[in-house]
Design a protein around this nucleic acid. Structure first.
Lengths: 329, 329
DNA sequence: CTGAAAGCGCTTACAG
DNA sequence: CTGAAAGCGCTTACAG
């Protein structure tokens, strides 16, 4: 197999490769007729420029990269939300799934993308340092960094944790349980906010009523099942750190013969699409995931234009009242 | 900002760039001590090779590309399933979301990837022709092509459509309805199989009982609602072309006061994770989505090794009996 | 075991 | 308005 190069097009058109390059890129001045003819010939020959040749010399790739460890569930929604905004700003979008921060950094700084959105817990401080030196415009979705070239879009998880506790309190519930999430920024902060509020109200969380759901449906289900087997008093209400673990928790409760919300209220967090379809429809806290993704990409486009230096966008949660929580008698 | 190049490393280490290149790539023979020293220095200097420089000369990029128009829902699950298999075969995976077949082809043939999995209805015959000439190993997930370098992994949608009709028939249902999907390969074939079976049995599908759900939850919901307003006799059973439209359909039925499956049986297709969580748990046809993705990537890795020429993998559906269908009295 | 040199396919000042 | 030439950062025969 033989690739068609710019040389082939030049020969066919009877011009220099410079002229071909100019004609195709729209750069420089030239007779319109020459331009049209060259473009026509290149098209007929199915000429596809070698990306590597082009970018080796050129300073920009026209591509923004999204770096993540997974596109499952929550992550997929975030990434998906970035796409439209990316195109609207005239960039191609490329998604890199990597398992380590090292390989992420490698790709990030190998001149394949002009800017990046990063959502990857494997990206550590030592990686951040190198990134800073590179001056590559970057937006983080899972940590707070603000420098000339780096912004963050964060969900206000601490405040959300407080909001969850406050809401359940306002319904009259006092014996609360929580199914906390992973040890990521979100997981830690959501939980901290929840505990802080309870402590302040004088009803600190009891150890038996802290379950580990790891943001996972099945793990939450398992933890809840185990809890029920211990025959401790049922809590008045449960705050599940995300909707998925709320579903797992409700399933365990229902299977054990309890009714939600008659016997116990369950509050989720995220407002994924399923939540309004679930039975009972899930009362939850909307984290505006689509918004997070779009905001991140918009912020990146801004950094690219250089018209603003690093910012912190803090996105706030909002309670969505449905059927899985009720007021205490 | 100044990038560190191979020259900088060579100077620092007091060797030639050839030696640096050899040391880092593990190619060629050299004193272990020299290799170690160079690697050490490169690491300390945070040297990240320029991807474009590397690939311009090198014949392989070590990267496989996945091309799709979206990573939402169904597509996300497929793509996600490819990742592990890709890494297991020693390749990096890159996902390109593009809106047109033209831009897809452009990227495909720009020497950024060594092979590709394509799942994109915008990729047309004229694109296929050019792809053939390029001899790039490729696996399609949404059409049947088999050449020396191109394989397909398909879900046997026609057979699945037949299976759906046959199953509902076996439960004693005769007045059937279907909520068909989009005009993609899957949508068309699933529907054709369903209709064919009914025709053969002497109970051809009535026009009023053919709804268009476009594989979409809300569209199916809307269509079903409209149907119910027309006060036509309820069907005995409904085949929804995918689980999502089954949920939409059930929601409309429940809101109108009907019970599933007491008043009408509903059969889905796909077996997405939600189906077993739904109330009623959805009887559906498992399309082995994860398997499809993994098989596609495995097949691509095979094509890369050149140890087999293009194949067709046909994946069969399997009925999963749950609670949304019941036997007619 | 190491290095000088050619060259991958482009872009981009610069000269004409 | 067009083209010759330098050069982007690497890899890879090849020579020593």
């Amino acid at each position: 197999m033989k690739r068609i190069t710019i040389k082939d097009v030049a020969r066919e058109a009877g011009v220099s490769i410079t002229t071909v390059s100019h004609a195709l890129s729209g750069q420089g001045v030239m007779k319109q007729e020459t331009r049209d003819r060259v473009v026509e010939i290149a098209k007929k020959m199915q000429y596809m420029p070698d990306w590597n040749g082009r970018n080796l010399k050129a300073s920009e790739t026209g591509t923004l990269g999204v770096f993540t460890a997974s596109i499952k569930g929550y992550y997929g929604i975030l990434v998906d939300a970035m796409y439209e905004e990316c195109h609207a700003n005239g960039y191609e979008m490329e998604i890199f799934i990597t398992d380590s921060g090292d390989s992420l950094l490698q790709i990030l700084l190998s001149r394949r993308v002009d800017g990046a959105v990063i959502l990857h817990s494997g990206f550590q401080e030592r990686h951040e340092k190198v990134l800073q030196d590179s001056e590559l415009p970057t937006v983080f979705l899972d940590r707070e960094i603000q420098t000339k070239y780096v912004s963050s879009v964060l969900f206000d998880s601490y405040q959300t944790g407080r909001m969850a506790a406050e809401y359940l309190f306002s319904l009259g519930h006092r014996r609360l349980m929580t199914i906390r999430g992973e040890n990521t920024y979100d997981g830690i902060e959501r939980h901290r906010g929840f505990e802080d509020y309870l402590k302040e109200q004088g009803y600190p969380l009891e150890a038996d009523y802290l379950l580990n759901g790891y943001f996972d449906r099945w793990k939450a289900y398992g933890e809840m099942k185990q809890f029920l087997e211990r025959k401790l008093p049922l809590p008045d209400a449960i705050f599940a750190a995300n909707d998925d673990s709320a579903f797992g928790c409700i399933k365990a409760l229902v299977e054990a013969g309890y009714n939600v919300p008659a016997d116990v209220s369950v509050l989720g967090c995220d407002d994924i699409e399923l939540s309004q379809w679930y039975v009972p429809a899930l009362t939850t806290i909307c984290t505006h995931m689509t918004d997070q993704g779009a905001t991140a990409m918009k912020e990146l486009a801004g950094l690219m234009r250089g018209n603003c230096s690093g910012k912190l966008h803090m996105i706030k949660g909002r309670i969505i009242e449905r059927a899985s929580c009720r007021r205490a008698e």
